[in-house]
Design a binder for these strands. Structure first.
Lengths: 215, 215
DNA sequence: AGTATACGAAACCGAGGAGTATCGGAAATG
DNA sequence: CATTTCCGATACTCCTCGGTTTCGTATACT
């Protein structure tokens, strides 16, 4: 994304003048997400973001050419703080794996992701790049993890062999988004556990749906 | 909602001058929904709505005091064209009832409802009246119908006695909204039938999940 | 006819926000 | 120390859009 200035020595950019403070980038992106989650794309102004980041407007526009570019970048940069597919939970049972993904300290962050998505949803139709960023940063991580866990359970013979893994993998994210954005109710641990025990596991055809309350 | 002019004879308003053309109301509300579905709340301008309805801006503002009021009214007025709870389908089986609700000619209308909701989602947090209108006009009808059908199936002993009827009733609307707004894929008959057969019915614990293709 | 209002079209007003430019100061290079 | 660029702050331009008003015409009641 970043255009490199023409320099014969690519290793040492060695530009003139005061160098950019890289820490401002992260502050601005974080402020963007915060304002976005609270006010949505159109309710967010660059001044809000700058003030929230303790930065000047010029500092924002020196890094991103427009509001749209800033938002796309901010959304795309949410991707990282998630679980990598390498070390998934492996408790032996599908329920154990799913419950292991419900970690209380991450719930507010997950809920904010949903609110960010809500704040840009009406723009996604006209900005495919934004739609792509939302999908790969917010939706894909959870769906992909769920799919992997379900597929493993299927191969283990723990769930129905004709289970629709793709739909089941999207089930929890869909219900969570729905609850946050449409019903405007909180997504707490109880809701997620009930979702696992009363919807996902029964739909997957797990033999013994267990009682709530996890490890 | 309408304020009545002080008139001794309530039966005959008998106002002076040219009377309002009531047909403009419906045209403007319909135009509002159309523009809303395509551009979202902030992308929609009153001029767009007026042009789309073949009306003048003044005609709009003579009826609604502000853009927000117009949108709330337009959303609230979607409620009607839905099934009433009085004559639900009653085919004898839960699957039959659910499949009977999947009627091809109504799919585009249902999809537009979802896009309208998407265009307004970021505003629902700051406008409780709008959130209420969205819920009762778009979400509540489907959810309530599903809940009634599920409850009946439960009393019939067709589904698990410990099935979470409330969550199951919201399942299809949530997945449909998710598919339309987040995944941006079409909601066609095949998707809805697969949703019934591969997710809802298994989750409800129906004994024999049947093959796709309905009556 | 006379009056009062609704209609579509278009001009108009004012607020707010995206984006730019300027300023004094700070931090790097040479 | 000179130069160059970054920084936060702030003033400024330009344009869009919500909302109002005006105008010529149409349609009702009296």
């Amino acid at each position: 994304m970043t255009v490199e200035a023409p320099s014969p020595d690519a290793v040492a950019p060695a530009r003139l003048g005061r160098p950019r403070d890289a820490s401002r980038d992260a502050d601005i992106l974080e402020a963007t997400l915060e304002v976005l989650a609270e006010h949505g794309y159109d309710g967010m102004t660059i001044d809000m973001v700058a003030a929230h980041a303790g930065a000047g407007k010029a500092t924002v526009y020196r890094r991103w050419p427009s509001k749209a570019d800033l938002v796309i970048d901010a959304v795309a940069c949410m991707k990282m703080r998630d679980i990598d597919l390498e070390n998934l939970p492996d408790t032996g049972s599908l329920r154990g794996d799913l419950v292991a993904l419900v970690r209380a300290p991450e719930l507010p962050e997950a809920e904010r992701k949903m609110r960010v998505m809500g704040g840009v949803i009406s723009l996604m139709s006209r900005e495919p790049e934004l739609a792509q960023a939302v999908y790969s940063a917010i939706l894909a991580p959870r769906i992909t993890i769920n799919r992997a866990l379900l597929q493993r359970a299927k191969e283990r013979g723990e769930i129905r062999q004709d289970a629709d893994v793709d739909k089941l993998a999207a089930l929890a994210p869909a219900m969570t988004a729905f609850r946050t954005l449409a019903e405007r109710k909180p997504v707490d641990r109880a809701f997620l556990l009930s979702l696992i025990d009363d919807v996902v596991l029964p739909a997957a055809g797990v033999a013994t749906p267990t009682v709530h309350d996890g490890p």
